[in-house]
Design a binder for these strands. Structure first.
Lengths: 345, 345
DNA sequence: CTGAAAGCGCTTACAG
DNA sequence: CTGAAAGCGCTTACAG
């Protein structure tokens, strides 16, 4: 109970004394060492271990073998469901290889990121970095790292290993869905350019829509100032009220939270979804089903991404260098709900 | 870079050799030991530390001093925003006391919970347990723990220290809001009885509504089978279609996700919110603003709860036993949105 | 003010 | 098959 004086945890020595063998023998037995131990001794040791409820101290083991059996993970925002799923995937893969996963959130702040990096690095064998790579400071800190790391949902400079989803395929899925419904004027709500996934999706959007419209300007891109609903709402308003321009009949949002705000703002402006404007969002979440109008989304394989990142990192601890870029083969899925329809005639 | 051979990390010994002093002196300087060191020596050591970019190895330090400077946290579900906020609060408090916070998710599964407990316990100085206490196995495991722990958002058996929000006040807030609007027939969507917060809220609901209605049965309680939207929807349907009974004019949901499902199901059944039925949910989240009808909620001070739990735990590491029950003084807030209105005449 | 020694709890060659 | 020794990188009395 909190505050109560703790009993002493039994040590290897306690076991060895009770079993009347040297500690090294106990260690060997517990680590399944190849070198054989007499069956009787073996059993005696196991009995004592059982009796004392002995668990090796992982800290001491770490110091001795130079491995912590721990993986670290840096994430930008715990409240974003995408990361929750990546964590789940990474945690499973770690557990399967008998590693503990620990993580820290960094926000969108370079100082916090660097501090968390410093704190985590000496305690783990490898690091999964899903946080946005900020300025050079973070890149330098990472490249000075003495342990392997892998980027997740990010691409780094040079040949830094990274695991990403197929953002381009996801964007194409969304645009083709809208085009298939007959839309030709599709707007895009993008976000801060420094976030690499956002930049890629914007490029993919431009590429996918370029043949759709007679004029490039029919498929405008606006940048939301942040990744939250309010910024999405404001961006939507800009798209819907461009002066002298025809209003887009559909909008593709780079983030689910943008879509939440965008849909709300559209309704507030008297623009109906999907009758007047269709909306598709990148990234899926259960809430999409429960909005004013259930939201059509592109679902990325976040759990699979987290799992793969952990697996590759674990592999690199065993000396198998990971490929510099892994695009998860599990393709994005389009979840068609009620926010998309053919444009009004 | 992942896979690249690591440079050797400088050790205390590297510093002491370069500075031509014994390692113990370096250790003293770095730990700000009271015993004085000659100013010149002091400076020389700091210079070398700087030059080598030396950082003490926390693992070795842990083994030596018997403290890891790490706190652990067990949470049931990363995807529940409430825990995200508790983590944030706990992380801040930990960082302020120079501790790292590591956590693991347990799901709603006793086996997983016990495994995570075993993995975490030897690596941390204390534990924050926000996971649902399952059967006796988990309680036993906790009571056998050799480190202090504190429950968060849970109450344990006996005098186990715990930090909770004022659930009763939150329930009262919701019920009084509805009563003030004129509602007399208020239903409650509760959940699995083994979750202690849910059980408490149910009791508080019964207490708060008992004087409201002529017949107890006018304020019925139904249990959702799980804590998800679908279960909430089914529970709502049961409330709306009780045979031979008048339908409640308002419903209080024990969880936000229940409210999501409940609202959707009401609409699907042709019951309008709030015209035909008002809905209030326990727990708040940004999404409440973006639903078909923006949802009135009770907001609990989750970040403050997480922070307080960490603070008390840190205190107990310093020998200040925490009180057995801490109800956070920051009161719940009622966020009135559009899902509540006076009952139809 | 400084250094030598022992110890934290493990693992791992190396001898026997 | 078993044991003694050294070492992982620190800290902390204890002498001088």
């Amino acid at each position: 109970m909190a505050g109560r004086a703790a009993r002493r945890r039994p040590t290897l020595r306690d076991v060895s004394e009770l079993a009347k063998v040297d500690a090294s023998i106990v260690s060997r037995v517990l680590n399944g060492e190849a070198r054989r131990v007499a069956p009787a001794t073996h059993q005696r040791i196991l009995d004592v271990v059982e009796q004392l409820n002995y668990e090796p101290n992982p800290i001491a083991r770490s110091l001795s073998v130079g491995r912590t059996q721990t993986l670290g993970m840096l994430i930008p925002d715990l409240r974003n469901l995408a990361y929750g799923n990546m964590i789940l995937g990474a945690e499973q893969a770690s557990a399967e290889s008998d590693h503990v996963l620990i993580f820290a959130s960094t926000g969108d702040d370079e100082t916090v990121m660097n501090r968390q990096l410093e704190r985590l690095a000496p305690r783990v064998d490898g690091l999964i970095v899903a946080s946005v790579l900020q300025g050079g400071g973070t890149r330098d800190a990472l490249s000075r790292l003495r342990i392997p790391f892998i980027l997740l949902n990010r691409r780094g400079p040079g040949r830094w290993p990274a695991v990403v989803g197929d953002d381009e395929a996801g964007v194409t899925l969304a645009v083709e869905h809208l085009a298939g419904l007959g839309h030709r004027r599709i707007g895009h709500i993008s976000g801060p350019a420094r976030v690499d996934t956002i930049a890629r999706r914007r490029k993919a959007f431009v590429a996918a829509t370029t043949h759709l419209a007679p004029a490039r300007d029919d498929c405008p891109v606006v940048r939301a100032a942040a990744i939250d609903a309010e910024a999405g709402a404001d961006a939507m308003e800009r798209l819907l009220t461009r002066r002298g321009r025809r209003r887009p009949t559909a909008v593709f949002c780079v983030a689910l939270v943008h879509a939440l705000g965008a849909m709300r703002r559209a309704l507030d402006l008297g623009v109906r979804v999907p009758e007047d404007v269709s909306i598709v969002a990148f990234d899926d979440a259960p809430v999409a089903d429960y909005l004013a109008t259930a939201l059509t989304t592109v679902r990325m394989p976040h759990a699979a991404m987290g799992r793969r990142a952990a697996e590759l990192l674990l592999g690199s601890l065993d000396g198998e260098p990971p490929p510099s870029l892994t695009v998860i083969d599990h393709p994005p899925e389009l979840i068609v709900r009620n926010s998309t329809a053919a444009p009004a005639a």
